[in-house]
Design a protein around this nucleic acid. Structure first.
Length: 889
DNA sequence: GGAATCACG
DNA sequence: ACGTACGTGATTCCG
């Protein structure tokens, strides 16, 4: 069976208009070197990326209007009259838009006397007759009259990159009429934007009612005499001609005399060289970077790039391959993200001109490879050293001598560019010679080795070559940013520390978890029954939608908050509903236990490997602030705040009897960082004197003389205010958080800034710096760009301002614990301890150790942590230990 | 695949 | 007037 052909038809004018106005705000920032406005072209191209990927057409055309005069203006002179002139900033973009379309393999077309709609209608009809599948993209809902079993109309909503698909069914659901009735609707109600009238006093509601009853304008007028006497009837009779004319105007001509046919418009894909030239001309860097040869190309590569030659590694040539003393690129290949468990499919190493590839992981286990891996003097260039370290470890090797990690370098240069794909990153630095993994291996369920081994080898080779080629450029950029130390002395060594922590893993007592799971199961069952009783019916408690119906419709509780999709049923909402019914408490309990059960009992059990441990992966190049994140499983959000959840920690145990879990955390590290970098003398004094910072703040903002006057509630509010400052305060946010009025929150903040004046200066200075240089930095020159700081959109700009205040604080705290971790691994080794660092949870480090080493750790760990950096205030570290993680707190 | 919810610092 | 706290990840539902 042959698959039916796919046709893509684009309403060029309509989409261009939408594109132009969607990016109207950015009009003046999208200007080519020649002074041409490019915002519409840019947004149009974004839409193309999306729709081409989705439709994958065999044939494609973009239709444009030929001018103002058409056969419709002949029928009705004022058709589309009164429209204001197309802005010059847009009309100048049309010729380029057509050039873009050609370069993207899509035929642009216009026909004098006809509108784009008619071209589209005609081709869609021809395609329909051959049972092709057609997608029509437009911003104009009128085109939904063309929907059929084979034709889908895709409407751009909210800009041009959000698309809504209309099938005949969707048209009916959304508009209440069949696609064929749209022209009747327009006939009755007219169209103000196209400037033709319908029947007097008939709007959408009346028109829909009439169509519901009569089906079409023709049938309506056949029976108009039978209607009861009414104003409506008079208008209908009066405006009969107008109604028929309007229907005619609204009807798309599906037999326009086109000068081309379907056979003339094959979709030819990106014409890479022309397209690259076009992007360069318009200064479209991001599109240029995304540009690459399509997968399955015969390797032809128009971008200067070369395909590097390679040699397949064998036992015989291994020695020769390992001989060069210059730094070598090295990469172990795995297809799954989780490198702790993914099969290893091959590896590559070498220097330019001498690339060696292999699809035999066993070679990594040879003595020769082991010696080379462990030889610190043999420097290695890698992409994601941590991943390679773990993989080498699985092959019995110890990867040392890491000199340059492309992934870490690109992350530090711009944390927004947090791709994990070598190809994508290389492209963003202008190296187009390497494909992305998605292109070579596919994604999701389709991910697999290429059929042709040479494709695999070539990909490995191109990756290694890209690392080598980009190294000098990126290292220079790091130096330009004053980030070479951060890179060399912090992130690079940390990647090895993290690899060792991940490999160590933490032991989980599965039996313990299962026992807890059984108990939770019982509790859930009881709660479930109770909730069904109270609701008077069974429903899915896990479905916020169904729960909303029960609470707010059936039980008539007041709606406190709405979400995009319906009623909010989140904790803060439910808390406010407690007095209405005991069902609320049961739901809250159910939610709490269900969360623990699904995420922490069942979820955790799934990640335990045969060694009885879980081996998380720390993502070192993800967060915008420099923190780590933890996945598969996430060990940075194990419950602690509520007693039921906290019990989960009883399942985290040392790897052998006679050992314990030891934990140390920084106390108030973010506020200490704030005190230090703001230079605020009052806040510094509080820390230097070892005072309770929240109580101290309470005394200051409530104007008390003595700590004994601070009530628990005052301290709670002061604490929230301290947090608020760190997050980039707003009176509204604070008022919400501690349940006070907005003016009160405002007074709090004013009092706070009066007491800590240099903190106020710090917040103002941070925003100022972001405005002036476009980015903010941490103590160690970690950088975050904040393009939103100049936005005209209040929300976007406000967010950037809060981020400007928060990132140096959160990020510097992240820097500090990273330094501590590197020093800690060093210290444990130097002291010859068996103690092993296992986990990092942002401001705490968790170890396992023989009981006999606990006394040593109690001194050593805090010492290493509080001496990681020298701030203007002391760092305080608190420790605890016990037989499980539960006890170590 | 997005939205809602909730776990952590 | 705008409409919010900063940084994350996993699970579930549902179109």
């Amino acid at each position: 069976m042959t698959q039916s052909k796919k046709l893509l038809l684009i309403d060029g004018n309509s989409v261009a208009f939408r594109a132009f106005f969607a990016m109207h705000q950015q009009l003046e920032s999208f200007v080519s070197p020649d002074g041409l406005h490019t915002n519409a072209i840019y947004a149009f191209n974004n839409m193309l990326d999306i729709i081409l990927k989705e439709v994958q057409p065999d044939y494609a055309l973009a239709a444009f209007d030929a001018g103002r005069t058409t056969f419709r203006t002949a029928q009705y002179a004022d058709y589309k009259g009164g429209r204001s002139k197309t802005p010059e900033e847009l009309s100048e973009q049309f010729p380029y838009l057509q050039e873009l379309l050609k370069d993207r393999g899509i035929t642009p077309y216009q026909l004098s006397n006809y509108e784009a709609d008619d071209i589209i209608g005609t081709l869609a009809r021809e395609a329909d007759e051959q049972a092709w599948d057609t997608s029509i993209v437009t911003g104009d809902r009128d085109l939904t009259q063309l929907t059929s079993d084979h034709t889908t109309v895709v409407i751009t909503v909210k800009g041009v990159t959000q698309l809504e698909k209309y099938t005949p069914q969707h048209v009916e659901d959304k508009m209440g009429i069949k696609p064929s009735q749209i022209i009747d609707l327009k006939g009755l109600m007219g169209d103000t934007s196209d400037n033709y009238p319908g029947v007097t006093k008939v709007g959408p509601k009346t028109a829909l009612k009439l169509l519901d009853e009569y089906g079409s304008i023709e049938n309506l007028y056949d029976h108009v005499d039978e209607m009861k006497k009414s104003k409506l009837k008079e208008h209908l009779i009066e405006d009969k001609n107008q109604a028929f004319l309007s229907k005619k105007l609204a009807t798309i001509d599906r037999h326009a005399p086109l000068t081309l046919g379907l056979a003339d418009i094959p979709y030819t894909g990106d014409h890479l060289e022309e397209l690259a030239e076009f992007y360069r001309k318009l200064n479209f860097k991001s599109f240029l970077n995304k540009l690459q040869p399509a997968a399955g190309d015969d390797g032809a590569n128009p971008f200067a790039g070369q395909l590097h030659e390679y040699t397949e590694l064998t036992a015989a040539n291994l020695a020769a391959a390992l001989k060069p003393t210059a730094p070598q690129a090295f990469e172990i290949e795995m297809l799954d993200d989780n490198y702790h468990t993914s099969p290893i499919v091959g590896f590559v190493l070498g220097t330019p001109g001498h690339w060696y590839v292999s699809s035999q992981p066993e070679l990594l286990q040879t003595d020769a490879m082991h010696a080379w891996l462990a030889d610190e003097s043999r420097r290695k260039y890698v992409f994601d050293g941590k991943r390679n370290y773990v993989a080498a470890n699985r092959m019995g090797g110890h990867l040392q001598g890491l000199e340059f990690d492309l992934l870490l370098a690109s992350y530090l240069l711009d944390v927004n560019n947090n791709s994990n794909d070598l190809g994508e990153i290389a492209h963003s630095y202008g190296d187009m010679d390497v494909q992305t993994d998605a292109e070579v291996y596919g994604t999701g369920a389709h991910r697999s080795m290429p059929e042709d081994a040479n494709v695999f080898y070539q990909h490995l080779t191109q990756k290694a070559a890209a690392i080598y080629q980009l190294e000098p450029d990126l290292y220079q950029k790091l130096k330009d940013h004053e980030q070479d130390q951060l890179f060399r002395d912090m992130e690079m060594p940390l990647s090895v520390v993290l690899a060792e922590m991940e490999i160590a893993g933490i032991t989980v007592d599965a039996e313990r978890l299962k026992k807890m799971g059984a108990e939770f199961q019982q509790t859930l069952k009881v709660l479930e029954e109770k909730i069904y009783n109270e609701a008077g019916e069974k429903f899915n408690i896990n479905s916020p939608k169904q729960l909303g119906v029960i609470l707010f419709e059936k039980m008539n509780m007041p709606v406190i908050k709405k979400t995009k999709t319906g009623y909010s049923t989140s904790v803060d909402v439910l808390e406010k509903l407690k007095s209405y019914s005991p069902i609320i408490d049961d739901i809250l309990n159910y939610r709490q236990i269900a969360k623990i059960q699904s995420t922490y009992v069942e979820g955790l059990l799934k990640s335990i490997l045969p060694d009885h441990k879980v081996h998380t992966r720390y993502l070192q190049t993800l967060t915008q602030t420099g923190r780590l994140s933890s996945v598969d499983p996430n060990l940075q959000n194990i419950p602690i705040r509520l007693p039921e959840g906290r019990k989960i920690r009883q399942a985290f145990v040392p790897r052998q009897d006679g050992w314990e879990i030891f934990s140390s955390d920084y106390s108030q590290i973010e506020l200490r960082v704030l005190a230090s970098i703001s230079g605020d003398t009052n806040m510094q004094e509080a820390f230097k004197e070892g005072r309770d910072i929240h109580a101290n703040t309470a005394m200051k903002i409530f104007g008390l003389d003595d700590p004994s006057q601070v009530t628990p509630n005052m301290r709670r509010q002061a604490k929230a205010t301290n947090f608020g400052i760190v997050y980039g305060i707003s009176d509204y946010g604070l008022s919400q958080n501690i349940g006070i009025s907005r003016p009160e929150a405002k007074r709090f903040i004013a009092a706070y800034f009066e007491q800590y004046p240099q903190v106020k200066e710090y917040t103002e200075k941070s925003v100022q710096i972001a405005r002036e240089q476009g980015y903010v930095e941490t103590l160690f020159h970690r950088r975050r760009y904040l393009p939103g700081i100049h936005s005209k959109n209040f929300n976007v700009r406000s967010f950037a301002e809060r981020t400007a205040m928060n990132t140096p604080i959160q990020g510097s705290a992240a820097d500090i614990i990273k330094v501590a971790m590197i020093n800690m691994q060093q210290a444990l080794r130097a002291e010859g301890l068996q103690a092993t660092m296992l986990l990092q949870v942002h401001d705490e480090l968790i170890f396992e150790a023989p009981s006999a080493e606990i006394e040593t750790l109690k001194k050593l760990v805090p010492k290493v942590m509080d001496s990681a950096v020298k701030l203007a205030v002391p760092l305080k570290v608190e420790s605890a230990y016990g037989p499980t993680w539960f006890a170590a707190k």
